[in-house]
């Protein structure tokens, strides 16, 4: 019983870690590729065009 609890909470924290990594990654991609906040569009302009993100 104890072993099972430890195993399942380990699996749960793995899933939480994977979800955290994916959300963090998507947030960084959004900032680099989509965000128009502040001067983001101007700074990111060339790399967005060159990476093929829709820009204007």
């Amino acid at each position: 019983m104890t072993t099972k609890t430890i195993a399942s909470s380990g699996a749960l924290s793995d899933i939480a870690t994977i979800a955290f990594a994916a959300v963090l990654g998507l947030g960084l991609i959004f900032a680099a590729g989509f965000s128009h906040a502040g001067g983001m569009h101007d700074v990111a302009h060339d790399s967005r065009h060159a990476t093929g993100f829709p820009c204007h």
């Binding site: 793995d14 870690t17 994977i18 979800a19 990594a21 994916a22 963090l24 990654g25 998507l26 947030g27 960084l28 991609i29 959004f30 900032a31 680099a32 590729g33 101007d42 700074v43 990111a44 302009h45 060339d46 790399s47 967005r48 060159a50 990476t51």
Partner: peptide, 27 residues
């Protein structure tokens, strides 16, 4: 200065791609 922005944004974006890819590795 403009090209430094291109470098910085690429680093941010590709680290983002790296996190999504590594999350896939973990799955």
């Amino acid at each position: 200065g403009r090209h430094m922005g291109t470098l910085a944004i690429n680093i941010v974006g590709w680290i983002g791609f790296g996190f999504v890819l590594a999350a896939g590795f973990a799955l």
